[in-house]
């Protein structure tokens, strides 16, 4: 089992609910994710959400990204601009733009070339000089296999190049949190591998780097995540399912000793079955 420790909370979701008019979409969402520390290596966090369609995953993601204001509860993230308290950044309410958001369709600015999009993504970073920004962009474009197409517009890119551009844009925008809404949906094997590689690059980039994603591919969720939540309809006390989404199950892959593994073991497979059952029951 890999050795690890957990430090301060980096994401705290307290009693979050979202309603559109009279229609409650999600409610009572509570969870806390902490910074994971592994000896002698930089380790970010990878959190997966799975569940049946229409259970509120996208609504929760939009709330986590600050794009949708919850009607109830609070979402707190690390405030990296504030002075550290007891050796770690304090938490504050999430705001629009705090969290990178990569949509299922890998949306990009249609009027910007890849390089222009990266420059735009970095425009608000005051911790880096203009010269350094240029160097960083070049280096990242090379690392992510996009340098050759840096002067091309989104409509001139392949699907895989669009994905990497959309993810890299958020990486360079410097938010430590990146939410990806079904990043594997509709991708071929090669492009799925591209996204997996992107996950690894992000995870190794910063201790606080946190990827939150949802998928219908349970095997991939179990393979990549170190923490996995099932969102669904809870069972009512009298039997039958409620009709408002909430978190019905949490699987901590770190505690089970199967996180960050290069092999998809029998334990992983057993977990897949457990997760599938939890989804079917909700």
């Amino acid at each position: 089992m890999p050795t690890y420790n957990q430090a301060e909370a980096i994401l705290q979701v307290q009693d979050v609910g979202v309603a559109y008019g009279d229609k409650q979409i999600i409610q009572n969402i509570n969870f806390t994710e902490k910074d994971v520390l592994r000896p002698d290596q930089v380790q970010g966090q990878t959190i997966a959400f799975v569940g049946r369609s229409g259970r509120g995953k996208s609504t929760l993601f939009r709330s986590l990204a600050g794009l949708e204001k919850p009607t109830q509860g609070t979402i707190l993230i690390s405030d990296l601009d504030a002075q550290e308290q007891e050796g770690h950044p304090p938490l504050r309410g999430v705001r629009e733009g705090d969290v990178g958001f990569v949509s299922q369709n890998y949306v990009l600015f249609r009027h910007k070339t890849i390089e222009q999009a990266m420059e735009f993504a970095m425009r608000k970073r005051e911790d880096v000089s203009e010269t350094e920004k240029g160097k960083m962009i070049t280096q990242h474009l090379k690392d992510w296999g996009l340098y050759q197409v840096k002067d091309q517009y989104p409509n001139e890119l392949s699907g895989g190049q669009r994905q990497r551009t959309a993810i890299l844009e958020q990486v360079l925008s410097s938010t430590n949190y990146i939410i990806m809404d079904e990043p594997f949906s509709g991708l071929d094997v090669g492009n799925i591998q591209n996204v997996i590689n992107a996950f690894k690059l992000i995870n190794l980039s910063h201790e606080l780097a946190t990827i939150i994603f949802c998928t219908h591919d349970i095997e991939l969720a179990v393979e990549l995540a170190d923490s996995l939540y099932v969102i669904g309809y809870p069972t009512k006390p009298g039997g039958g399912l409620d009709n408002v989404g909430t978190l019905v199950k949490h699987f901590d892959l770190k505690a089970r000793g199967i996180a960050w593994s290069d092999q998809f073991s029998r334990e992983h497979q057993l977990l897949v079955e457990e997760v599938k059952q939890a989804i079917l029951d909700s």
Binding site: E96, S103, V107, A166
Partner: peptide
Amino acid sequence: IPQEELDHARSLQC
């Protein structure tokens, strides 16, 4: 204009 495009810009701190 799809909501996704607006969200994309908002997520880049626009």
